[in-house]
Amino acid sequence: MRSSQLVEKYFRTKNLPHIWCPGCSLGIATRSLVVAIDELGLDKNKTVIVSGIGCSSRAVGYLDFNTIHTTHGRALAFATGVKLANPELHVIVISGDGDASAIGGNHLIHAARRNIDLTLLIFNNNIYGMTGGQFSPTTPHAALGTTAPFGVVEQPFDLVKLAEGAGATYVARGTAFHVNPLVKYYKNAIEHKGFSMVETICICPTYYGRQNKSGTAVQMMHWLKDSFVLNTAYDKMPEEKRQGKHVYGEFVKKDLPEYVEEYVGIIERLKGEEDA
């Protein structure tokens, strides 16, 4: 039996089915990226997808683009090199919550601060899945992890606020349930000139779900459906209805000088002075 044309075109189908667990939404997020790339009509040979380490970072193994599976937390550093060496490439980074905000936390804030023209997609499943369910910087307070058997005592990062505070010029959050807006955010992020970050709220039924008694993959998808509200709708909601709700949407869209253009501009200017 054949697979869909979209999958045939953009996936390394010999590596499928992927290793992600039944009901893991990383597959949904990865497909949404491919839909966004297809709708934008990006040239596969001019698109580079870079990832770090973790469940989400496995995505590059399945995607038929120029891909690099790098070291833990360093995807943005490799991507920075790729973009500077060849600014005409579309460079997309896929990272998880641990990879991007713990091990690679400094790369995240400094890539955002520089406003380098990269697109960072953080697939946030609130746990270290690959290594067996340790809590990450985005695991909610009091949730259970194998390293927090009595509940996490820390407060989680809000990745949207973190990226915004660090200087990212496009910031959005989508969920693996709300697929159409998610594809739109991916497209807007890729088209944005400057550092763009889209957080995708994913479900991990195996390691997060089991420990926290979140139910089946279907129940966790219902949770995404019921508890995430578009930011513009949330702003109009009365205070009592906001209880237990989370927000998705586009949060930052602004233009600032882009790092690679600035850098190349200096080189061109100095060359001009030498010639004169």
Partner: peptide, 12 residues
């Protein structure tokens, strides 16, 4: 199709 994590069902 949009929400199948495994690309196992689709319309064509």
């Amino acid at each position: 199709e949009q929400r199948c994590p495994d690309y196992a069902i689709f319309l064509e």
